[in-house]
Design a protein around this nucleic acid. Sequence first.
RNA 1: CGGGGUGUAGCGCAGCCUGGUUAGCGCGCCUGCCUUGGGAGCAGGAGGUCACCAGUUCGAAUCUGGUCACCCCGACCA
Length: 591
Amino acid sequence: MRWSIALIPTLKEPPADAVAPSHILLLRAGMIRQLGAGAYTYLPLGLRVLHKASQIVRQEMDAAGAIELLMPALQPIEIWKESGRYETYGDLLMKLTLSGGHQMCLGPTHEEVMTDLARDLINSYKQLPITMYQIQTKFRDEPRPRFGIVRTREFVMKDAYSFDADVAQLGKSYDAMYEAYCRIYDRCGLPYVIVEAESGPIGGDASHEFMVPCSTGEDRVIQCTACDYAANQERAEIGARLALATKPDLTAPPFQAVDTPGKRTIRDVCGFLKVEESTSGKLLVYLGDGKPVAVLLRGDHEANEAKVRRAIGVATLVPADPETIQKATGAPMGFLGPVNIKIPMVIDRAIAALATVVVGGNAVDVHLKGVVPGRDFPLDRVFDLRNAEAGDPCPRCGTTMVSRAALEIGHVFKLGTKYSKAMGATYLDEKGVEIPIIMGCYGIGINRIMAAAIEAGHDDNGIIWPLSLAPYQVSLIPLQVNKAEVMDLTRKLEQELEAAGVDVLTDDRDQRPGVKFKDVDLIGISLRVVIGERGLKDGSVEIKWRHEAAARNLPMATATQAILAELAEAKATHDAYCRERISARSGAATS
RNA sequence: CGGGGUGUAGCGCAGCCUGGUUAGCGCGCCUGCCUUGGGAGCAGGAGGUCACCAGUUCGAAUCUGGUCACCCCGACCA
């Protein structure tokens, strides 16, 4: 491709609206243009990256035995009512009414369509297992699109669905996808972390997320600094602290009630009483399956509702309304405490470990000082109930964990029979018994691969694409476009490299060298080849990798071969890296 | 949905408070000269319903009211 006929509208100045590095650089590099909130045009250069990512995903899906199909984005609303997600998916679903009043929606994901297809086409255990996938545009009515192409209302997703006869078969399908995902992200050169995620009905190891740590990430990953434990904050467990006081100090003076007029928040109370928030307690009231239940946490901690739900064994958990709280505890929000509480209470380990705490007095404008856990209220139901934070101990090895912002680029999930049961997708086993098919679903945000690659790979001058994703692998920069010798050599290199299957971008614009260098750095082409009069005098051209600082000279006579050798070596090095990762994984169990 | 901010040329901004020539500046774009290894210089030029609607006024980019859009923080995110 020649720059002069390409459409690459680079910008010198960063657009004011952009905040995230990937957003700024994609705009500046002329790869995307915004149409509206969460809706972007992919300009030719950006589209090439998207295609390269798609192609890697497609190859690895195929290699893992998944088969590609294409489902409609336009879906009848009825199947969403059938699965029950018309209600639960809520406003995120983009609904539209066609002429004649027919209700449809634009698919945010395709479990319903897939299950509908499966109940039609799969009847026998002999057809299982099978995994199908598509690469397609999804639509979600995001309340707040953000960070350029990171969170949009319209995005390209690879979604795969596995169908299995039993849980063991599902495990194999799941592992195959998990491994394929690792290969995909390895090939894309992304520094990803695999974390345990909230897994819903199947529980256990039923869900993993693939995350790329970066400042604009919308999720938080909790990671052990010693072992390989990693989980998203929703899911992360907290190891027990060693040698913490386990017996209450019965000799401590009795607690005393203090007036705390109008002090409702932890910050207000602690500031008023001049105590640390980490020695205070807060009592939250939830409705677990409709019944009030109290949750006691340290004042500076956050409740993890999934952990609470598991601890008390309920299916639904919602914060109680003020009237319910008043009725259940006798006090309004802001003055609740564990002493003489009348409703069932679960207690987080961190507060159970304190010697004394400040808590609400279950009466208006009253708090209690010097309350001793285990003496003044029972410690019979102590669990891990809070969100993990940086500094907490690892649940596996006890080492301190760190917390990092990360961008989710993929998710694998064991669905079980949620959709097959709701929609009647069953098969007949060997004995002729009708059994719901067991499903799994597996998503990859293609646009996010692109965003994550930039978040993880850029410098002051612009994007640094991994070779596998770069819109062009090689740029040819003739410095004197009016000089025949320069252009003759450029054309020769261009022709020979393209004939060898290399993606080449030739900057044939009559621009000053500085402009060309800045532009080609900005758009992040991996290998730069400069053809200039200066070099031609001693028979050489210059090459420079985008990610390296130094340039090197090559003899012009054998330049094509040398450039191909450079590319081949880079590819071989990366392939070796991918193979190493594969063999490292083959030892470790995945799920 | 709550809070905050911004809408003036393709991009970045000034002007608005205190209404009054033809709405400016930098980058980019066009023409010419000159220059040519890290976003050169000079000269000339094109490009604007000042987001939209309504109002106040002799007169509105500027004041008032409304609407819309976009960005940020939060809530939300199978």
